[in-house]
């Protein structure tokens, strides 16, 4: 789960300066564009119905009829890979949205509240942070049951504490900033100050981090599907495809390799672009 890794690595201002070469960013951008198009209009790119089984066409090797071959039920692997983009992006965006929203709420309460509120919220966060993200997601799934939406919530929920910590730290900084104190002395209402000044300034760095977190969430969601806790069987979902493909790895290793490559390249592209965004927001330019 690299969402936490990113936040952990980024919090104390230990940002890696040189990340990748420029061609990397361009490639990442192109790949991600393709993924977004695949997610929005999969039918445009996919040559076939990703769910159409063919009992006499299983385990076909890549060829003219099936560019990437077929799976154990004779479904077209390329089409399934393309249709797999949507659940992955929904997982990444949805879970990150839950994490950021929950984290911002908790972080602001802690950062702007009195000592008792702050203490209570931070202890709660400490408790939740003491359990590794994946275990936390597993607990949430046990509670809600399996399935795509529950896995999405589980991944988002598990990311809340990390975001909450960052928002709280930012809120602390912003709160003491001269312009906020000035606004306070000018008699502007507290809610207005929070809404107009604290929130945007505290949340901006979080949003930048969150773009990288999307990649982590995609990976985490795929992990849950790999463990058999996420997407349902016939659906085209990368983690699920990989888990099933692994069973047939001695028959056709492509069945596992293709979804594995898809999820890895997506996470990688999101991370590359996210880091670029962060670099720009911090006023640094690429080399």
């Amino acid at each position: 789960m690299s969402a936490l890794a990113e936040t952990a690595a980024a919090v104390p201002g230990t940002v890696a300066r040189r990340v990748t070469l420029r061609p990397g960013r361009i490639l990442a951008g192109l790949f991600l564009t393709a993924i977004v198009v695949a997610a929005l209009v999969p039918a445009l790119l996919a040559p076939q119905d990703p769910l159409a089984i063919s009992t006499d066409g299983a385990f076909l090797h890549p060829g003219a009829a099936h560019l990437l071959g077929t799976d154990e039920s004779g479904r077209d692997t390329l089409s399934r890979m393309i249709y797999g983009a949507r659940p992955s992006l929904i997982m990444g965006l949805g879970a990150t949205a839950i994490g950021v929203a929950g984290g911002t709420l908790l972080g602001l309460i802690a950062g702007l509240g009195n000592r008792i509120t702050e203490g209570a919220v931070m202890r709660l966060i400490d408790v939740v942070l003491s359990v590794p993200e994946l275990l936390l997601a597993l607990v949430v799934i046990t509670l809600l049951g399996t399935g795509v939406s529950n896995a999405l919530f589980a991944v988002g929920f598990a990311a809340i504490p990390a975001y909450a910590r960052i928002v709280r730290a930012q809120a602390h900084i912003v709160r003491r900033a001269t312009y906020v104190e000035a606004a306070g002395t000018l008699g502007i209402r507290r809610v207005t100050v929070i809404w107009r000044h604290v929130l945007p300034n505290a949340v901006r760095p979080v949003l930048v981090l969150a773009t990288i977190g999307i990649g982590g969430a995609i990976g985490a969601g795929a992990s849950l599907s790999f463990l058999g806790l996420g997407a349902k069987p016939p659906a085209a979902e990368w983690g699920d495809m990989l888990s099933i493909g692994m069973q047939y790895i001695s028959n056709d290793w492509l069945l596992a390799a293709i979804p594995g490559a898809a999820v890895t390249l997506t996470v990688l592209s999101v991370t590359v672009l996210g880091r670029e965004l962060r670099r720009r927001s911090e006023g640094r330019t690429g080399r």
């Binding site: 769910l51 159409a52 089984i53 009992t55 154990e72 039920s73 399996t146 790999f226 463990l227 058999g228 806790l229 069987p233 016939p234 888990s243 099933i244 692994m246 069973q247």
Partner: peptide, 16 residues
């Protein structure tokens, strides 16, 4: 029953 790898039989029955 949920397992990490669900038998393709369910997909096939469903599709047919």
């Amino acid at each position: 029953t949920q397992t990490a790898t669900i038998s393709p039989v369910y997909d096939l029955v469903q599709a047919q």
